[in-house]
Write a protein that binds this DNA or RNA. Structure first.
Length: 295
DNA sequence: CATATGTCCTGAGAGC
DNA sequence: TGCTCTCAGGACATAT
């Protein structure tokens, strides 16, 4: 499930496409329902063929491929959302069956950029320069999780009555955190996943800022998490390694690696699995420790 | 307005 | 063995 670290790894892994010109775009024949391409495949192909890739970016869990413009103005962008099982590859994909889109390249260091997606929930969108800010700016999507400060988090979530774990998944509040990393982040803060945002204290928001950066940056260094289904791969079709460092996600029943006494519990919030340690993350915060940071 | 729920999609695995 | 059923969770549409 590509979240911020996985998408960042994809971005870094396809750096060789920068400077390449798109020679053609191909949609392989597929018995499966086609993925969503906006506005449609024909227009994506027509408007990107002949363009040169001038840069790569990432907005939360979205990968941005920036193109040049025939008359020197600001160019269009291709925005790829991998969602559950989408992969962006330079190497051969895990299988031909779920190969959804191929950008054939020339004049640079890479020859093909492929989008592979087993479940087909991913999307590829051509975003004209004029529309980019409206669709992907701060108004539409929150600040990137790596840039989020305690003040920003408290400002955006501090009045919410939602449970903190559910709120961390809201991409308009902060962009890039998904179901897996939300559990890992909360475990490092010692915050119980069911605690309401509006009951968190100043020290909690500070702890969140630090844990978000720590977990996501460490996960990026390990090139993301490849879960037991093996779906996630980097651009060279290699597995990530951060799953070996998970402290709670998919660890139900195991002894907590943080306190060595609690047993990791799985609960369901908003129809999604949450994992936490009842010892490290008590439902009621310890008064002494919290009041030291109190307002 | 904020928050909650339903929907899409495929393949793996469970249960019979 | 082969069928049906459930589950996984990204973003977004719709409902409360």
């Amino acid at each position: 499930m590509p979240e911020l670290p996985e998408v960042e790894t994809m971005k870094r892994g396809i750096a060789a496409v920068v400077g390449c010109r798109i020679r053609d775009v191909i949609r392989p024949k597929c018995r499966l329902k086609p993925i969503q391409i906006s506005p449609d495949f024909a227009r994506l192909r027509r408007r990107t063929t002949g363009r040169t890739i001038v840069g790569l970016g990432r907005i939360g869990k979205r990968l941005v491929i920036r193109l040049d413009h025939p008359r020197g103005a600001e160019g269009d962008s291709i925005v790829i959302e991998p969602r559950m099982t989408g992969l962006v590859l330079l190497a051969e994909p895990p299988g031909r069956e779920h190969l959804r889109l191929i950008f054939q390249l020339e004049g640079g260091l890479a020859s093909e950029l492929k989008f592979w997606d087993r479940r087909g929930l991913g999307t590829v969108t051509l975003a004209p320069a004029a529309d980019f800010e409206r669709r992907y700016g701060l108004e539409a999507i929150g600040p990137d999780a790596l840039e989020a400060t305690a003040e920003m988090l408290r400002e955006r979530l501090g009045k919410s009555r939602r449970e903190i774990k559910v709120a961390l998944l809201d991409q308009r509040a902060v962009a890039g955190i998904g179901n897996l990393y939300a559990s890992e982040i909360l475990h490092r803060t010692g915050i119980h996943p069911r605690r309401r945002c509006d009951r968190l204290q100043a020290g909690d928001w500070q702890a969140l800022e630090e844990a978000i950066r720590d977990v996501l940056e460490t996960a990026i260094r390990h090139e993301g998490s490849t879960l037991s289904d093996g779906t996630y791969r980097n651009a060279l079709n290699q597995a990530g390694a951060f799953q070996n460092h998970h402290r709670v996600y998919d660890c139900a029943g195991e002894t907590c690696r943080g306190c060595a006494s609690g047993s990791i519990v799985r609960i369901v919030q908003a129809q999604r699995s949450t994992f936490f340690c009842p010892v490290c993350q008590p439902a009621k915060p310890r008064a002494a420790k919290r009041s030291a940071h109190g307002v």
